[in-house]
Each structure stands twice: as structure tokens, then as C-alpha cells.
Amino acid sequence: MSQVNKGLPGRVSAIVFSSWCALYALIGLQWWSVIEPLDANLVFAQMGKWVPYGWAIGPYAGKELITLVVWLVVQGILTLVLKKRTFSVARLFRSSVYLFVGFLLLIWPPFYHMLWGWLPNLP
């Protein structure tokens, strides 16, 4: 009698969660470029030199490169750590929905303005 696997392999979960880590890293980088534009954009522009045609998209090339590195490093670590585990599809979906709602909340300008204590622009 064959045994039925009722969950997702750890490699799949590692891919999903590393993608979320990369998105949250991109949020942090975007916040840094909004809070300290001169310093952050200089760093991002320097890092963007490694991206083909990175000069064409400016500082975003550096953000893209850092996000890619975060994604690959986290995916490698999680794949090694979670390779022998299985995860429930429902649990993975539910946690992804929570992470998506958190992502939307963090990129919503009224929320991060409140978070950083910025007053709304007055007419």
C-alpha cells in the first residue's frame, strides 16, 4: 500500500517564503530611499552598475540587485533547513495571505506616513 503525501515539500515552502522575504527586503530598501534619498540612492546607483543597463533605471537597479541576493540567500538557507519537512497547503496559503496583507499595509502611504510620524501635506 502506498503512502499518500498530504503536504508540500519543504523546497516549495522555501521558495514561497524566500519570495516573501525578498518582497519585504524591497520594502525596507524603498523606505530607506524615501527617508534618506541622497545616501540611499547613491548606494543603489553604485550597486546598479552590476546590473546590465542598470544606468537606464537608476537607483532601482541597486534595489533590484539587493532583493535578488536576499531572495537567493534566503532560499538556499531555507531549502537546506526545510528539505525533509512537509507543510500543509492550507497553512502555507493562510500564511501567504497574511504576509500579502502585511505587504499591502506597509506600502500604503497613509500607513507608513503614520509609522514614521510624517504629517500629511497640507494645501
Rank of each mutant, 00 (worst) to 15 (best):
H113F: 10
P9F: 00
V73L: 12
L65I: 07
P123H: 04
F44A: 09
Q30P: 00
P9A: 08
I77T: 07
L115Q: 11
Y112F: 04
V51A: 09
G76V: 05
L122C: 00
V101P: 14
G10K: 06
W118L: 02
S96Q: 10
T79F: 02
Y60L: 13
A14T: 02
S95D: 14
E64P: 12
V51D: 11
F44Q: 11
V74Q: 05
V73W: 09
Q75M: 03
P120C: 02
G76D: 00
Y98C: 12
I15C: 07
Y112P: 10
S95T: 15
G28K: 03
K84P: 13
L92C: 05
L92I: 13
S13H: 02
A56G: 08
W118T: 06
A45P: 10
P110D: 11
L8Q: 04
F111V: 15
I107P: 08
D39I: 13
S33R: 06
W71N: 06
F93Y: 10
I15N: 04
L99A: 13
M1A: 12
N121M: 09
Y112D: 08
G62K: 07
V101N: 11
S96L: 12
G62I: 08
P59F: 15
L105V: 15
Y112N: 10
I35W: 05
L99I: 14
A45Y: 08
F103E: 03
G58H: 07
G48H: 13
F93N: 06
I77F: 06
M47S: 13
G10Q: 05
P110V: 12
S19K: 02
L68T: 13
P52G: 08
K83M: 04
V101D: 11
R94K: 11
P123C: 02
Q75D: 02
K63D: 06
T79L: 03
V16Y: 01
V97N: 08
P109M: 14
S96H: 08
G54H: 09
V51E: 12
L8H: 05
I15V: 06
I57V: 11
W20T: 10
N41R: 05
L82E: 04
G117I: 00
E64I: 03
K83I: 02
